[in-house]
Design a protein around this nucleic acid. Structure first.
Lengths: 130, 130
DNA sequence: TTCTAAATCAGAATTATTCTAATTCTAAAT
DNA sequence: ATTTAGAATTAGAATAATTCTGATTTAGAA
């Protein structure tokens, strides 16, 4: 990610991006706001949302919108899958090689022009399945 | 669905259920409210939400929470997949046989106790891909 | 330096959903 | 038929996530 400098990122956007990159887990917009505020105390809520949308549009972060009420933001932008706990809502990444032809088969059935395919495993996380 | 009568459904819950069953497409809670109101003019918003949650718990409807801001409600309760349009947000059902062992493989990787697996095709719907 | 467009800001507005407290319904027991 | 207890419903308030607004600031081009 050498070219981050060259993207016309403002310091606010850089703070948001950095926050997401440094996070251990997926963050909500609220959590991003809290953390970004530590890097850049004056940043406003609206700017965090604007920045998240901007970064998303630029492909620097991705958004996950299922499982809980709020969207989560992810530094990983390459398509990947997730597992979500039915009990506590915990969301983790899942790297799973999908069979060839699955995307084409799905596109065929729906008449959609397929861009990507995403998989969600619903179940119980290790803690909740005890 | 003969046993619908026997489930101790109140008339409000029956109205909500009927609304969802008669709908052509997936509905938001708001749309359910509007339509249910036509069947049962006095029904309140809170009751629609309570009923949706109740029916979901009973397994009579299912909820879809991705793609748009609001949850969508579905009369189909058997696990099935969806395709969503990146451009207009249109959501359609997708019946796709998943390869055997995929669920087990995913569960294995995440250490989750897997319940089901769900697939989302992202792309452009026929209208938007013109 | 001046100008223009984009970015940021604070806070209001909107939207989806849940909660609360009062009232009503239901069905079992008397 | 009456009482009663618990569940369901209601209207509206409360909350939470997100977007919008209009004023101000900033950055870069002329």
């Amino acid at each position: 990610m050498k070219d981050i400098e060259s993207l016309g990122l403002t310091k606010q956007r850089r703070a948001v991006l950095q926050t997401i990159h440094e996070a251990e887990k997926h963050l909500t917009a609220n959590q991003v706001f809290d953390d970004a505020r530590r890097l850049l105390p004056g940043i406003s809520f609206a700017t965090v949302y604007n920045s998240l949308n901007y970064l998303k549009r630029k492909g620097l972060i991705s958004e996950i919108r299922f499982g809980t009420d709020a969207s989560l933001y992810d530094r990983k932008v390459t398509p990947h899958d997730h597992a979500i706990c039915n009990n506590c809502g915990k969301l983790v990444d899942l790297e799973l090689p999908l069979p060839d032809g699955l995307l084409a088969a799905a596109a065929d059935r729906t008449k959609f022009k397929a861009a990507s395919i995403e998989l969600i495993l619903h179940g119980l996380c290790p803690e909740c399945s005890k």
